[in-house]
C-alpha cells in the first residue's frame, strides 16, 4: 500500500473538482451575459466566442468572479471563527491542571505536529460528551485546532488515539477546512446567481435573438439541476479528503493497524448508539459534520466514505 500515491491521487481529484466548479461558474456567468444582453449577433457559440475573446465585455461573468474572489478572501480571513461554536469546548493547556487522559491528548497533538513538520502546535480541545468523535479545523498557526470528545478518549487506547489525531492533523496539513470553505463559497455563488438569472430569464420576453433565447432556457434548466450537481461535487470532494487524511495518518504514525482498529471501534460505537439521532443539533453542527473523523454513509450523498472502503484503502483485507 503506497500512501503517498493515495494522497497524490486524491489531490488530483480535488483539482478536478475545483476546476469543474470554476468551469460551472464561467458557464453560468456567460449564459447570463448572453441572456440579459441579447444585442449579440449570431448563434450561441458565436456569442460565447465574442465574450471569451473580449469583443464584448462579459460584465456579469466578471461580477460573479469578483464576488467569488471577495468571498474567498473574506472566508480566508474570518472563516475559522465559524468552527468552534455551539458546543462545550475546553482548551487543553500545559500550565493548567490536566488529568492523565488530557495530558496524553496534548502529548499526542505535539507528537503529530512534530511528525508533520508543522512549525506550530495546533490548539487541542476536548468536548465533554460521550459521543465518540474528533474533528479538526484551520490551516495555520492562528486557527489550527484539533478537538476530541471525552468518549473517544475513554474508548481508544493510546495508539488508536494517536491514529485519530494523526488523521485530524492530516486535515490540517492538507488545508481541508480552507478548501471546504472555498468550495462552499463557489457553490453558493453559482447556485445563487443561477437562481437570480433564472427568475430574470423566466420573466423576460422572448426576443428574436435565438442565442439569448437558448441561453435563457439553459439557465432555467441549470437552475433546477445545479443545486444537486454542486452538492454532489462537494460531497465527492469531502470523501476524497477523508481518504487523504487516512493516508496521512498512516504516514505520520507509520502504523496502519492503529488507524484500522480505531476506525472499527468508532464505527462500531456509532452502530450501537442510536441516541445521537435524537439530539437536537445546533446549526453549526451541520456545518461541522464534514470535519468529523467519522460520519455514517456510503453514497454520493454522504460526507464520508463508507467504513468498508476506508478500511480497504488502509490495506485491511475484508
Amino acid at each position: 500500500m503506497d500512501f503517498r500515491e493515495a494522497i497524490a491521487k486524491n489531490n488530483r481529484r480535488t483539482k478536478l473538482v475545483i476546476v469543474s466548479f470554476i468551469f460551472l461558474m464561467f458557464i453560468v456567468g456567460l449564459l447570463a451575459d448572453i441572456a440579459v444582453n441579447p444585442a449579440y449577433p449570431g448563434s450561441l457559440k458565436q456569442s460565447f466566442l465574442a465574450l471569451l475573446t473580449g469583443q464584448v465585455i462579459p460584465f456579469i461573468t466578471l461580477i460573479i468572479t469578483g464576488i467569488s474572489i471577495i468571498g474567498i478572501f473574506i472566508v480566508s480571513k474570518f472563516g475559522h471563527k465559524l468552527m468552534l461554536s455551539g458546543k462545550q469546548f475546553k482548551e487543553l493547556k500545559r500550565e493548567e491542571q490536566l488529568d492523565h487522559d488530557e495530558k496524553v491528548v496534548l502529548n499526542i497533538v505535539e507528537e503529530m505536529a512534530i511528525s508533520a513538520g508543522l512549525n506550530y502546535k495546533p490548539r487541542a480541545y476536548i468536548m465533554e460528551t460521550n459521543e465518540v468523535n474528533a474533528f479538526a479545523a484551520g490551516w495555520n498557526e492562528k486557527n489550527a485546532v484539533i478537538a476530541v470528545t471525552r468518549g473517544l478518549m475513554n474508548q481508544l487506547n493510546r495508539a488508536e488515539l494517536q491514529a485519530v489525531i494523526a488523521h485530524e492533523t492530516g486535515h490540517i496539513i492538507h488545508g481541508d477546512s480552507k478548501l471546504t470553505l472555498y468550495v462552499g463559497i463557489l457553490a453558493n455563488v453559482i447556485v445563487t446567481f443561477t437562481n437570480i438569472f433564472a427568475h430574470i430569464a423566466f420573466f423576460m420576453r422572448n426576443g428574436n435573438n435565438p442565442a439569448a433565447n437558448q441561453a435563457r432556457l439553459l439557465i432555467i434548466v441549470l437552475n433546477l439541476i445545479l443545486p444537486f450537481i454542486t452538492q454532489i461535487l462537494y460531497l465527492y470532494l469531502s470523501r476524497k479528503r477523508e481518504y487523504m487524511a487516512d493516508a496521512a495518518a498512516v504516514q505520520l504514525t507509520g502504523d496502519n493497524q492503529a488507524m484500522i482498529s480505531a476506525l472499527k471501534k468508532i464505527s462500531g460505537h456509532h452502530d450501537n448508539d442510536s441516541r445521537e439521532e435524537r439530539y437536537v443539533k445546533p446549526v453549526t453542527e451541520h456545518y461541522r459534520a464534514a470535519a468529523y473523523i467519522y460520519s455514517k454513509g456510503d453514497s454520493v450523498f454522504s460526507t464520508h466514505p463508507s467504513i468498508e472502503n476506508r478500511l480497504k484503502e488502509l490495506g485491511e483485507k475484508l
Binding site: 492523565h100 499526542i108 512534530i114 493510546r158
Partner: peptide
C-alpha cells in the same frame, strides 16, 4: 510511563520528519 512513551515518540517523529 506516558512521558517516556511521548518523549520517545517525539524523538522518533522528529527523525522521521
Amino acid at each position: 510511563q506516558e512521558e517516556i512513551v511521548s518523549t520517545e515518540n517525539k524523538l522518533n517523529f522528529a527523525k522521521k520528519a
